[in-house]
Design a protein around this nucleic acid. Structure first.
Length: 273
DNA sequence: CAGATGCCCTGGGCGC
DNA sequence: TGCGCCCAGGGCATCT
């Protein structure tokens, strides 16, 4: 489940290995991967051009291509971007191959929740206009964050997951951030004190940064890996997600799991308030 | 407009 | 060993 830290680790890997590379071919094969436009557009807009830079907003990767094009990639639930020698065998569920001379970038996505599209310009794509701020890229002050929260009579977890307020947080990091901030997932955003708002913002940034530093979270399904195929280590630092029945690292009470909005939520019922 | 629900999809784990 | 079932959940459409 690639969320912001995992996508950032992929971004760094791509930035290091693909920046400056010439796109020599494009082979889009996955029908569901290309749902915004005709996949033939990729070849017309990108072939023969270089990759200038790799940016990210929330869970979206933004590959900046010469002559004002952006290749947007969302990994969805099971997507991987792998850079490998072009000679090697491609994994099952490879839906796009971007030729980079004697290497290639492969978009692999068994569950096809991911998406790829091309858009004009090097700013924030219009398709991503609905996204909120990125906690590691955009400037955000506690005062401004408090303003954004004060108008929302929404519970914290669905608000963090919604992408409209803040972009990049999914189910794992929502639970981890709320545990770190000591806040219950069903607290209303508009009811937080100034101190709680500040704690939430601080813990969100610190935790996401630490996860990036440790290479993100690779769960037991081994689904998430970086561009070279290596797993992350942040799952060893999880304090709530996936820890039903384990002792809370802060108060030693058992972590509980509840079904909420059709998905799992892990929390400490004692010290998250 | 917030909030709930269902759908898309495959692989892995589990019970029998 | 095999089969059916359930679960993982991001984003979006649809409805109230």
């Amino acid at each position: 489940m690639p969320e912001l830290p995992e996508v950032e680790v992929v971004r760094r890997g791509l930035s290091a290995s693909a920046t400056g590379s010439l796109i020599t071919s494009l082979l889009p094969t996955g029908a569901r991967t290309f749902r915004r436009h005709d996949p033939a557009l990729l070849d017309r807009r990108l072939r023969g051009r270089r990759i200038d830079a790799v940016d990210r907003h929330g869970k979206y990767l933004l590959l900046r291509i010469e002559r004002d094009q952006t290749l947007v990639v969302h990994l969805g639930m099971s997507g991987q971007l792998l850079v490998a020698p072009a000679a090697g065998e491609r994994p099952r569920h490879t839906h796009l191959v971007v030729g980079l001379g004697d290497r290639e970038m492969r978009f692999v996505d068994p569950r096809t929740f991911g998406e790829v599209f091309v858009t004009a310009g090097h700013g924030r794509p219009a398709e991503l206009a609905h996204l909120g701020f990125d906690p590691l890229v955009d400037r955000m002050t506690p005062v401004r964050f408090a303003e954004l929260l004060s108008g929302r009579r929404m519970q914290l977890k669905p608000l963090l997951l919604g992408q409209r307020l803040v972009a990049g947080i999914g189910n794992i990091y929502a639970d981890e951030i709320l545990w770190a901030a000591g806040l219950r997932p069903d607290r209303l955003a508009s009811d937080l004190s100034a101190d709680e708002v500040e704690t939430l913002l601080r813990e969100m940034r610190a935790l996401l940064r630490t996860s990036v530093r440790l290479g993100g979270s690779t769960l037991s399904d081994g689904q998430y890996v970086d561009v070279a195929g290596a797993a992350g280590r942040y799952q060893e630092r999880h304090r709530a997600y996936g820890r039903e029945g384990a002792a809370c690292a802060r108060c030693a009470s058992p972590i509980i799991r509840i079904r909420w909005g059709g998905r799992s939520t892990f929390l400490c019922p004692e010290c998250q308030r």
